[in-house]
Design a protein around this nucleic acid. Structure first.
Lengths: 210, 210
DNA sequence: TTTTATTTTAATCAATTGATTAATTTTTTT
DNA sequence: AAAAAAATTAATCAATTGATTAAAATAAAA
């Protein structure tokens, strides 16, 4: 309470990277790689090449800093679905294709993202409940309507779970696959590229099969 | 080094639950729920209703105790695949059905298992490399052979990833689904039950689609 | 029962970790 | 240039945590 904290991040056009942004970037990297519990504030400071006290100077606490990163990552991960689900201008098949492309591109750039999200929602659900709304974002959506036209009487969650599973699961499993010698990095990239084209085809087959 | 440690677990037929087994059971619960980093030895001691020093008396260190649980869990999770993959007496479709049944039953009993495995392989890969062999367990397997007969020219990993994804991913996502209000516990149970029958059908459709 | 070995406990240690403080340096304002 | 504000640093604190110790309690062996 004694120390004054600079509250605003956008006081001026920062030339290259402000100290604040350096810390955030380091925090993104370390938190997503190791998770909250295994991350020490000293890891972040070292990664940023800055004095430890600056973390608290700019963000007050590890917890607060984590909250920022977490909100960012949740938005990154779930932000893809929201605009697609209620778009009346695209068919179910088109929606599928968009979701597959967006997720595989996102995860190719951020392979640690899904694991981080899942991990921290488990351990620190409070950040999640604050961000997402309380009601079911699926009920009454265009996507659900389109799904019911195609496959009446089946729970549309099966479709959505399968779609996300096929996109996301390989990235979650990748470390395991590499460590078991089932796959190397190059093969994984190739596999991912193939799946970009295959998952929409497979999803169509799943819908046709009921 | 000064203190004598009782090395063997099976010195006699333990009447109900030995102190050693109580610690292990508590460790299973806390480690799988919170992960290695977020688990304090005091959590385990409290969960077991025992004095903290007994952990070190029986298992020397948190690390060693974790190693035991980790090996157990890896075997539990991957032990399902091994016997199926090289069974010449079952068709690909039968293999699919067996894998689906075994995994969904296993995960219904141990919903935290897949996440724990994936999580700790990331953070502490040393335990994993020790247990699994170095060579690719898939190359030359019966399953791969059968897959190539059915779908020539496609990487069989797609099949295996999709199969595991459809089985395992719902359990990984379950906490998220519940917290977003998309699903309650009862609906998840129902969904899981449905998938037990549906995944083999879907997998067949995937294979037929190529 | 007496002696010995084993198990359990309470107290404590040393290292780690998130956070704070007071001093110093740098930047901005006047 | 002088003064004020902001940013940075080194040192340190208090709480937590994994582990140890020595004593006490319990069980086993003689």
């Amino acid at each position: 309470m004694t120390r004054k904290i600079k509250a605003t991040a956008a006081t001026k056009a920062t030339p290259v990277f402000s100290t604040e942004e350096k810390i955030k970037e380091a925090a993104r990297k370390v938190f997503t790689q190791k998770g909250y519990a295994a991350t020490r504030t000293r890891d972040i400071a070292e990664e940023a090449g800055l004095n430890l006290a600056l973390l608290n100077y700019y963000f007050r606490s590890k917890e607060k800093l984590f909250g920022l990163i977490m909100a960012e990552k949740i938005q990154q991960f779930f932000g893809i679905l929201q605009p697609v689900i209620n778009n009346p201008g695209t068919s179910l098949q088109e929606k599928t294709e968009i979701i597959v492309l967006k997720y595989i591109d996102l995860l190719s750039e951020n392979p640690d993202l899904p694991f981080f999200i899942l991990s921290e929602i488990r351990n620190k659900p409070e950040y999640f409940s604050k961000i997402t709304s309380r009601e079911n974002p699926l009920t009454g959506s265009i996507l659900v309507k389109q799904f019911h036209e195609k496959v009446p009487g089946r729970n549309p969650l099966h479709y959505l779970i399968n779609l996300l599973a096929m996109c996301v699961f390989p990235f979650i499993m990748n470390p395991v696959l590499q460590k078991t010698g089932v796959l190397d990095e190059k093969s994984f990239k190739q596999l991912t590229k193939e799946r970009k084209a295959l998952i929409p085809i497979w999803t169509k087959a799943l819908l046709d099969a009921g």
